[in-house]
Design a protein around this nucleic acid. Structure first.
Lengths: 120, 120
DNA sequence: ATCCCAGCTCGACAGCCTGTAGTACTACGC
DNA sequence: GCGTAGTACTACAGGCTGTCGAGCTGGGAT
């Protein structure tokens, strides 16, 4: 699954679906994006594209499709981070920089997660 | 400095400049991308765009410009990673995922960098 | 049977970004 | 003065995203 950037609308829609724990239909998604006054087909098109890109899975529900994220947002974010990391020639330097850049409490979280890994 | 994605050629050029410790002129950069047979103006255009996007700084050298990265590659990568992290609602979950995803030796590096931070 | 409607699928088009380059202007060395 | 390196400006095609409209289809209401 190549992690590529998403457009703004695509991301809004992913956010909606990530926030949900049930698969939604296009109509339902559209209702949740009310701020923007989008044509129903717009939403459908984007859902379709996201599916083709592998970000969503869909299953039939009568005539309608129900969409749900193929992956959790956390996984997606972690993949993005790894992909960024891949871009460098010197991974350890980048990791070190990254470590320096995360703020205190988050450094804690990272440390704890890493420590747990060690123990296994 | 908004961290945006770079195109392929843009990235190649950044890679060249990141690999160098001296600012280069467009001509010099062009010579280093020989694999591709690019017109000199192509290189100049891209250098110009990268400068406007804030990825490069340039200073005069006679009539020519000398370009150099505004930021180290490691910083750039770290920023990309942080930006990815910003995209999530639950940063700690994403961080935990990330920690689980980095491979052993790299987890070591991270751990060490983080520990050093703690000590200060 | 028919007609309407929800939903879908396809196709379109504009705007922005990137790759790629040509043209035209401008100093500096000879 | 002229040629040349180097710049700045302009351009254009292709891909991606936002945004829809048109047209097809299956079921339920009449």
């Amino acid at each position: 699954m190549s992690v590529k950037g998403l457009g703004e609308l695509e991301r809004s829609i992913m956010d909606i679906l990530w926030a949900q724990n049930t698969p939604l239909t296009a109509r339902e998604v559209g209702r949740l994006i009310e701020e923007r006054d989008l044509a129903p087909t717009t939403v459908m098109t984007v859902l379709d594209r996201l599916t083709r890109k592998g970000f969503l899975d869909r299953t039939r529900d009568g005539r309608a499709w129900r969409y749900q994220p193929a992956e959790s947002r956390d996984n997606y974010v972690a993949e993005l981070m790894l992909e960024a990391l891949d871009m460098t020639g010197d991974r350890s330097a980048a990791l070190t920089r990254f470590a320096q850049a995360v703020s205190g409490p988050e450094a804690e979280i990272l440390l704890r997660a890493l420590s747990e890994l060690e123990e296994e």
